[in-house]
Design a protein around this nucleic acid. Structure first.
Lengths: 249, 249
DNA sequence: GCATATTCACGCAAATTTCACACATTACAC
DNA sequence: GTGTAATGTGTGAAATTTGCGTGAATATGC
């Protein structure tokens, strides 16, 4: 085994107590550092503190279901997620995978296969980690800030947005769109890219959606929506937001 | 009209002719750039030339079986690999995953699930690509630079152009034309070539378009449009831009 | 019923296409 | 050499098409 000596951290989000105990035991026996939690709401808090290298996620959860948890997590974390579900329906799988899951196993599953897929996910994550470190790392900032004190601030972890110092409420789709732009600040994202990432792969031609939501965002964020400071259009190509302010020292 | 969303490249290694044709058709219909090949020995050669972003791999192949191909590929490539196999035995799955495969689907599989898992793999790969670019700074970002500090700079990744230190706005067609020239800097591109690549194969005779857009570009980029420094004409042949500056040491 | 998402149609601005013509360069004749 | 046609190139400005912002109407879900 040529892996680093540091234990990989696995967060296990599972409703069923028996299954939870089983996974906990098996994973710990393989030398992983495991935390288990029962419902989605707690899982979000725990994920922020624990910073897992991998998440095992049951889809049917109390308080906050698996897919919602996944979406929340993906707003600020790229940790791989393996879904463990009792449902074998194709549309559910496709949806989960498109919303950011890395793998999907149907219960009952083979323990050895699960372990193999865990190794795959951790192997990938470790690879990108190594690439980043060798290239001169720059961790993704958990906050986008632009335009100084009375400018625009997006806090990915808290899912909150401030404009001109005021907290602004955004609907889920509005927030997702803004996130996508803010995470690629300074780069023009094409209509296709935005539609695919926010609405999914079947909506790549629905330019009307984009226009509508861009308008909503501008109404809520821009001092003067007719002359955008943050949400710029590149005619015939797509949209972009300015690169973030240089962090002060 | 050319919308330059670069297609993802998929290599499909599959024994069965019918399945191969099916995958080829379905993937092409989704806008991927696909190459298909019948056996493992040829697949290795093709992978080296084609440089796929993703490999779909059948396990049972003539001349060189799937797992051997996978091991050979992994000696020099990190491209994600999805196994498509008729075998559902757990030990085979585990072995394939541990030898470097990223996913494993058992035939018969649902097309939509395969497509979703293809998207997952490509999404991951693209993410690490993006992280590398932002971390490695401009070192590996493709850029055309010519004429020193107050010269011409084209940043292909950000779709931005600077001339004489000033950011310049280009329309889609203007940008596409400049890109085509900058990508082949130092080489004269004929009228036909340029028209074909920017406007499409039906416009090879529309020399007026070229003249108009060359003029627009010169107005925006050249200090003195009447005496071009960057956008030169080869009388009776076509246009070209000078070779890029030698990278400083 | 309220908040959110989807869909539609119109006016305006930007980008592309099209046109008429001026200016160069080459080729050939004388 | 000079003159002249032929071809190719640069120019300005119209006509046309396309894309975006907008308000508002209609679904959908809690």
């Amino acid at each position: 085994m040529t892996t680093s000596d540091k234990k990989s951290r696995i967060l296990c989000v599972e409703d069923d107590a028996q299954m939870r105990a089983f996974l906990l035991a098996q994973l710990k026996a393989r030398g992983y550092y495991v935390q288990a939690v029962r419902d989605g709401a707690h899982a979000i808090d725990l994920a922020a503190i624990f910073e897992p290298d991998l998440v095992l996620l049951d889809l049917s959860l109390p308080t906050l279901d698996g897919l919602s948890f996944l979406r929340r997590l993906r707003e600020w974390s790229r940790s791989p997620v393996i879904i463990l579900s009792a449902h074998d329906e194709e549309p559910v799988k496709v949806k989960a995978l498109d919303q950011g899951a890395d793998d999907y196993l149907t219960k009952p599953f083979s323990l050895n296969e699960l372990l193999a897929r865990v190794r795959v996910a951790l192997r990938r994550a470790e690879e990108t980690e190594r690439l980043l470190n060798s290239a001169g790392k720059e961790a993704q900032r958990p906050i986008y800030r632009c335009g100084g004190e009375d400018g625009l601030v997006v806090d990915f972890a808290h899912r909150s947005v401030r404009a001109a110092g005021q907290e602004v409420h955004l609907t889920p789709t509005e927030y997702d769109l803004l996130c996508e732009l803010a995470r690629n600040a300074g780069k023009v994202l094409t209509h296709r890219e935005l539609l695919q990432r926010v609405w999914g792969p079947d909506y790549q031609a629905e330019n009307t959606y984009l226009r509508t939501f861009v308008r909503h965002l501008r109404r809520k964020l821009e001092p003067d929506p007719a002359q955008p400071r943050f949400l710029h259009n590149e005619l015939g190509v797509g949209y972009f937001v300015p690169p973030p302010d240089a962090p002060e020292l």
